[in-house]
Design a protein around this nucleic acid. Structure first.
Lengths: 192, 192
DNA sequence: GTCTATATTTGGATAGAC
DNA sequence: GTCTATCCAAATATAGAC
């Protein structure tokens, strides 16, 4: 389909423009000029600017889900659940830090007026459901385990993007943070 | 001074507008109408829209610094450094979560084209310098200690704001996260 | 599907009278 | 300091010819 190809081309150009101008500064005019059309012609592919944001959101969520699942499947699969927790954390942190604009679109609600559609958001929820199952296999099956796990990862990511974008100042501590988290939860268990 | 009063009134209205419309949607027109002026008259108080953002940034940074210092001074002061670390963490997390818009302006770089001035940013750097000194008094004086401390706090804040704004789902684990952090660092020290 | 033409709104900013 | 008048650029979106 020619239509689908052009659609993909528009989305690629949209990512590019957001990386240069900022997520909130996506402009249909500039976007159209980049792909060689008049701005009005974009409406043959997307019914509004927010439909473009939504398509980008869905695309990014899908890639996140796939990369996490690929990480879980690689190696011995379910052999060592703790190793799965660690491997997944690395993929998570890498995905979030390698593209700040994608992170902002997916995880921060900073675009005025944009909310992902139910269909797009459902994809994002799946990644969290996966994480919950994976932690449960490692004996960390409560909300508390999940929330603290995502919080320590989110913290490294947030600080890395805010204070040292493109660097390693915070994420280099990921393995130590995982040790800290796992030791703590392990000790809690023994304490009972 | 009448001038200063009006200036403050404009800044108050700007916070209000950002809370309703989003940080990036601050509009000089709407702002002027709110305070009962023509949009052009704002230029008697601020030389540009970014000058308004910068004044807001400086105001918020100053309040953050003052609240952290007040927390450090209260109680016995330097009696128990670890207690200071904890108390400061609570103030930090509360400040960040009680006003998402202020958090976005201060800690996320999401407004296209806006960078705080050197003078405003210097205030923000002071808070970090304070944190470093406070950790050092508690025997946690390295960059690694500081970065992991700010990361775990930032993680709770980021998740709280993104997934449960106005709630307590993540921040309720603050004391446990602090236990986890302090235990881990303590154990590291003994290990040597 | 793509264009021209156009509508409509909004944005930030300046000049100059008072 | 505040206003009127104005500029200029940009935004999203629609109508209709081809």
């Amino acid at each position: 389909m020619r239509h689908e190809e052009t659609r993909q081309q528009i989305l690629r150009a949209a990512w590019e423009q957001m990386r240069v101008e900022g997520v909130a500064s996506l402009s249909l005019r500039a976007l159209a000029r980049t792909v060689g059309m008049e701005p009005q012609s974009l409406y043959s592919y997307f019914e509004s600017k927010y439909a473009i944001y939504d398509a980008l959101f869905a695309e990014a969520s899908t890639e996140f889900l796939e990369r996490l699942r690929a990480a879980a499947a690689e190696g011995d699969g379910n052999a060592d659940p703790i190793e799965g927790v660690r491997r997944r954390a690395h993929v998570w942190v890498r995905f979030c830090t390698e593209d700040p604009v994608r992170y902002q679109l997916l995880f921060q609600r900073t675009i005025p007026g944009f909310e992902p559609s139910e269909a797009s958001y459902a994809i994002a929820r799946e990644t969290l459901a996966d994480a919950r199952r994976m932690l449960a296999r490692a004996g960390l099956g409560t909300d508390r385990h999940l929330d603290m796990y995502t919080a320590v990862l989110a913290g490294l990511v947030a600080q890395q993007l805010a204070n040292d974008p493109g660097g390693r100042r915070y994420v280099r501590h990921l393995d130590e943070v995982l040790d800290m988290y796992l030791d703590h939860m392990n000790k809690q268990r023994k304490g009972r």
